[in-house]
Design a binder for these strands. Structure first.
Length: 523
RNA sequence: GCACCGGUGGCGAAGUGGCUAACGCGCUGGUCUGCAAAACCAGUAUUCAUGGGUUCAAAUCCCAUCCGGUGCUCCA
């Protein structure tokens, strides 16, 4: 089944393909590195990651380019306030951004392009526009794009700008532009601001030009897909199309992918609402990176997601169930075949009464269920990245296989089929961590170290301090207590055994007794 | 104001004209267990914001109303 994706440009769901039949070439608008990334940012990058992984599942190779905007108004303002050179200031936040991307298991793009390292490309693009009189220099030395010269303007965001009369509502003198809608390509130097000496005159790039220049540099005049948050559709992406296509006379990106904004606790995320969260904020509150990833991916990208703490807890529990299942199937010793017929009441009722419901039939029914789950999983993702359905397909299999295992009806073959499916699931969702339960804990510890270094210990929840701080129990200490409890149980001293278990539980350590001994995990 | 998106069980959410309305979390009861945990089983929406309409048939299409959100300006 072909991978289909909604295309903002056409307004339809269309097959996504590589124009060269092999490598999907795409561009994603990256962060402006003026602060720590918030969960809204990461919803977008997470879905671009989802797109990468799904495209790979469909056999596509990837050439993904992402920009880092490392010069703009906010950066200039914040760096000045911090008394730092711009480069020093942005380096810190760029590094933090990639740490966060790693924490969320977001794959790196093939190419990272920094605005400040691509000034010449932008200048030459503007020169190409100037040569056609589409770019013009205003009195203050800034360069603008003449929208009137690009007939397709508005085709992405479906805006009809004809109704907007130049100067009707806007005092043109203030802008020094020919038309109020014309946008800046190059901003003339202002005192104290970063500036580059160029043939255009001294100044710095406008916001939009960097993406055009860098996309064209790495991907060519035309490429397969362009991605970003929904807010970028207008004016950013609209302007990118205008300046790129006017300069190259070729269609820019063919497919446009926009991720919707999220709400936090039912409201728009904003600092004034007090519901503005960075990834680090959440880690310090004790939420797991994997749960954040899973929640952010669980609602399909074209829908508004209401991000809540309850939702994080839910995701944590759902992942825990998946991991428990994964471990069970991976570590279990499943028989080659089932020889003893089972007259289990919960066995799949076969219609053919007279033919004795052979166990082989039940086993093959399970194989079918697993394969159907596998097919459903792939189909759901191929259908405009429907992650909710993809999740459901996995849980359908989980239940069926657990049931079979409970009734000694799981064969090695079906177990392997299941593991293959889970591997596929995790190649997309990347929350199982290959059984490495400690990855989340390690990320939380890293966040703690960061909080210490940045003097933000006040943001750390007491819960996290207890579990991960210096006073928390070491693995060895837990093992010792578990051993003591096992001993107590042998002597049928259940009071002592339960006391140990309860004490550990209070410290966030959950014990599970099984045939193969005691397992524990940090909650 | 104009434009757009959405309102489905306690919560999240899929489904967008036709099998008994997926799936997850939670809750209740059962099985298992010394007791738990994990797992499984059963129960948790006679109904899809509300009111009309179209149709043999609607959560799905149309109209109106209410509510939430978004864009039109920096924003993922």
């Amino acid at each position: 089944m072909a991978l289909e994706l909604f295309n903002t440009l056409s307004g339809k769901i269309e097959p996504l393909f590589a124009s060269d039949g092999h490598v999907l070439r795409f561009y994603c608008c990256g962060p402006t590195v003026y602060d720590y990334g918030h969960i809204g940012n990461f919803r977008t990058f997470l879905h671009v990651d989802l797109l990468r992984r799904t495209a790979r599942l469909h056999g596509l190779a990837l050439h993904h380019v992402m920009n880092i905007t490392d010069v703009d108004d906010k950066i200039i303002r914040n760096a000045a306030a911090a008394g730092q050179p711009i480069a020093e200031y942005t380096t810190k936040y760029e590094r933090a951004f990639f740490e966060d991307m790693d924490a969320l298991n977001i794959e790196r793009p093939e190419d990272i392009a920094r605005a400040t390292e691509n000034i010449p490309g932008m200048v030459s693009l503007i020169e190409r526009l100037a040569a056609q009189d589409i770019a013009y220099k205003a009195e203050d030395g800034s360069w603008y794009f003449r929208i009137a010269r690009f007939p397709g303007y508005g085709k992405l965001s479906k805006k009809d700008l004809h109704g907007i009369e130049d100067g009707a509502r806007v005092d043109l003198d203030e802008y020094d532009k020919d038309s109020a809608r014309d946008f800046a390509l190059w901003k003339a130097t202002k005192p104290g601001e970063a500036s580059w000496e160029t043939p255009l005159g001294p100044g710095r790039p406008g916001w939009h030009i960097e993406c055009s220049a860098m996309a064209i540099k790495y991907l060519g005049d035309s490429f397969d897909l362009h991605a970003g948050g929904e807010d970028l559709m207008f004016p950013h992406h609209e302007n990118e199309i205008a300046q790129s296509e006017a300069a190259t006379h070729h269609p820019f990106a063919r497919h446009w992918f926009h991720v919707r904004f999220l709400l936090v606790e039912g409201k728009k995320m904003s600092k004034s609402e007090g519901n503005f969260f960075t990834l680090r904020d959440l880690l310090l509150k004790g939420y797991r990176a994997s749960a954040i990833r899973f929640l952010l991916l669980s609602v399909p990208y074209r829908h508004q997601l209401n991000f809540t703490f309850d939702g994080l807890t839910e995701s944590t529990n759902a992942i825990e169930r998946l991991r428990t299942f994964h471990d069970r199937i991976r570590t279990g010793n499943w028989p080659e075949s089932i020889s003893v017929p089972h007259q289990d009441s919960s066995a799949r009722p076969e219609r053919s009464e007279g033919e004795r419901p052979a166990v082989a039939a039940a086993t093959s029914a399970l194989t079918e269920t697993i394969r159907k789950g596998n097919a459903d999983f792939t189909a759901a993702l191929a259908n405009d990245l429907n992650t909710a359905e993809a999740r459901a397909a996995i849980f359908d299999v989980l239940r069926a296989v657990n049931t079979a295992a409970d009734h000694s009806r799981l064969t090695r073959f079906d177990a392997e089929e299941t593991i293959a499916l889970l591997d596929k699931f995790d190649s997309i969702f990347a929350v199982l961590n290959n059984g490495e339960a400690d990855r989340d804990a390690e990320l939380t510890r890293a966040a703690l170290r960061w909080a210490e270094a940045e003097g933000r210990m006040a943001d750390v929840s007491p819960d996290v301090l207890e579990k991960f701080g210096s006073t928390s129990l070491t693995d060895a200490a837990i093992d010792a207590l578990v051993a003591e409890r096992t001993q107590a149980k042998k002597q049928r001293n259940f009071a002592r055994a339960d006391a140990i278990r309860n004490d550990l539980l209070e410290k966030g350590i959950l014990l599970e007794d099984s045939k193969d001994g005691v397992r524990w995990k940090r909650k």
